[in-house]
Design a protein around this nucleic acid. Structure first.
Length: 423
RNA sequence: GGAAGGUUGGCCGAGUGGUCGAUGGCGGCAGUCUUGAAAACUGUUAGUCCGCAAGGGCUCGGGGGUUCGAAUCCCUCACCUUCCGCCA
């Protein structure tokens, strides 16, 4: 959620910047400013009324003590009349402020200056391509075939147990999952990220805090009986750890990492995009989250990108880094770098990580603040990134490392898997 | 799931209708003293909204109600503790 201050100070800037995201904000911004002006004048009016009400009420007490009963009755009457008027105003203000909030949450985060305009994926900027070239034999198999061949991931069984998009990992396939999680967590903690194991189910307040609610409600599984949501990413519970918190400036930055299962309904997707591990309803992911002072957040973002690149490099897979254009960025992000692995067997890039700076967009909703050197309270910047999401790493790993003699496990993973090939 | 008792500022804890945004203690910060520190003493120490400011509004788990007036009374929801039941 954008801050009202930002909108008030320079509405034109907000409108221009949102155009980079292909978002025409003119009308909403105008409405927000109007509602904000209303809010302030309504408050000034009702505050004055309430102040008088309080004065009169305390006079009643004093008059009662002095035994001036008649005057007290007079005052009571006056207070009652004031109350009727202030209640009307308060109701009006509440309605106004609800509408203001409803409009305000419709505005996406403004992109930072590095972000170029664009409509969709085709306009993303390729920042870097790295890792070894992949050359596969003619008869190379996609990962879903390999999974079947070696009996390590069973999509059909998942359908039986739950439904499409809930695979069952078996044997070395299951062990590989556990190995990757541990490998990623170890690298992250070694880099100073504190390991967190959060709940995988959150309440609505948490969903709102990181921006999943109300706009992306359909993306989450909802537990109706208790009004809980299955998390779509560890970002939700981990960032919400700091909801309604004022952090002493000296305690920043905070860096955390968490492994969680992630649940996404992915309503409406189909085709080759969802084949095999390409898109799932449940998957494993290790996430990194940082809370920073505003002046440090872009340095932190660069550090996170470099950190994720380090992990990808160790896996020895072909990758590229994209800086997303305005139109392809999420609602909440100010800038996003995507990491993709090359899947030679599928002939396509697979997204495995998304590293973003949200600036104050989340912290404004979360009321996540810090006390600066002068003792003033300011909004923090929040950042997060995948490090990494497992399924597509597994997909690329299986496909790119396939040989006549089975799938070769990268050297760095062998201490975790306990085997060097899947055959 | 059943029963009872709770939820107050960074923490502990007082406050059961009248000037209470809240006594006191701890902790924090500043100062006095000290070569320095500790101790002692003094002062200070919630957030938020409106306002150029002066000042004012709101907040004692959340929401609603009673009343001229609510931290205090009533309703409701959430959470916590204890006992019973169940259980990895």
């Amino acid at each position: 959620m954008l801050t009202l201050k930002m909108l008030r100070d320079d509405p034109q800037h907000v409108i221009e910047k949102l155009a980079v995201k292909n978002f025409d904000a003119k009308e909403i911004v105008g409405k927000v400013l109007e509602l904000d002006a209303n809010r302030r004048s309504l408050q000034a009016e009702s505050d004055a009324l309430l102040a008088r009400q309080k004065q009169v009420a305390s006079r009643v007490g004093a008059l009662m003590k002095e035994g001036k009963r008649e005057e007290a009755e007079e005052a009571k009457k006056e207070a009652s009349e004031l109350k009727v008027r202030s209640n009307e105003l308060l109701a009006k203000a509440e309605e106004n402020n609800k509408e203001l909030e409803a409009k305000l949450v419709l505005l996406p985060n403004i992109p930072c200056d590095l972000v170029v305009p664009g409509k969709g994926a085709e306009d993303n900027q390729i920042v870097k391509v790295g890792g070894p070239e992949v050359s596969l034999p003619e008869n190379a198999l996609p990962h879903w075939e390999l999974a079947k061949k070696y009996d390590i991931i069973d999509f059909d069984l998942g359908v039986k147990i739950t439904g499409a998009g809930f695979p069952v990992y078996k044997g070395k396939g299951a062990r590989l999952q556990r190995a990757l999680v541990n490998f990623f967590l170890d690298i992250n903690t070694a880099a100073g990220y504190r390991e967190i194991e959060p709940p995988s189910v959150v309440n609505a307040a948490s969903g709102f805090g990181t921006g999943q609610l109300p706009d992306k409600e359909a993306q989450m599984y909802h537990v109706g009986l208790d009004d809980f949501y299955l998390i779509p990413t560890a970002e939700v519970p981990v960032t919400n750890l700091y909801r309604d918190v004022i952090i002493p400036g000296k305690d920043l930055p905070r860096a955390m990492t968490a492994y969680t299962p992630c649940f996404r309904r992915e309503a409406g997707s189909y085709g080759k995009d969802v084949r095999g591990l390409n898109r799932l309803h449940q998957f494993d992911k290790v996430e990194i989250v940082r809370i920073e002072k505003p002046e440090n957040s872009y340095a932190a973002l660069d550090a996170m990108v470099a950190h994720v690149e380090g992990i990808v490099n160790r896996l020895g897979l072909r990758y590229r880094i994209l800086r997303l254009c305005g139109g392809d960025m999420s609602f909440t992000s100010a800038i996003t770098y995507d990491f993709e692995l090359w899947s030679a067997a599928q002939g396509r890039w697979l997204e495995i990580s998304s590293v973003s700076n949200f600036e104050t967009f989340q912290s404004n909703r979360l009321h996540l603040r810090y006390r600066d050197d002068e003792g003033k309270i300011q909004l923090c910047h929040t950042l997060n990134g995948s490090s990494l999401a497992l399924p597509r790493v597994v997909a690329a790993l299986l496909e790119d490392n396939q040989t006549e003699d089975g799938i070769i496990i990268p050297e760095v993973l062998r201490p975790y898997t306990g085997f060097d090939r899947i055959d």
